[in-house]
């Protein structure tokens, strides 16, 4: 998993590239959490364009980061999820919690 973060004021954009499964979950989680230690980040945008595979382990990572942002009164958005990934997101009801763009 490759992660690329771009900061713009209170917003952090993270572009993911690779396969988000149980194997890559820990690295992805630790990477994002290290950046989120900066409490001035209030909005996290996760760009899924480069994610070629995701299963429910990936969903767990995203739901966990949603909780972190929610605790500090911030928000999380997801963009550019492919059809299969979108289906898992829909199934989980995550779209009632996070914003989603660029489908």
């Amino acid at each position: 998993m490759e992660l690329n973060g771009t900061r713009n004021g209170k917003t952090l954009n993270i572009a993911l590239k690779g396969e988000l499964d149980h194997h890559s979950a820990e690295y992805t989680r630790n990477w994002i959490d290290a950046v989120l230690k900066d409490k001035s980040i209030k909005e996290l945008v996760i760009d899924m364009k480069g994610v070629t595979f995701m299963d429910s382990s990936g969903l767990g990572v995203i739901l966990g980061r949603y909780r972190t942002l929610k605790e500090r009164g911030g928000r999380l958005s997801i963009k550019n999820a492919n059809k299969s990934i979108d289906r898992i997101f829909r199934m989980s009801g995550i779209y009632t919690l996070v914003d989603c763009t660029g489908m």
Partner: peptide
């Protein structure tokens, strides 16, 4: 505690 979504079997079924 492992931040599992609990959706594994649901995804397999779907």
């Amino acid at each position: 505690e492992l931040e599992r979504s609990g959706m594994g079997f649901t995804v397999m079924e779907a």
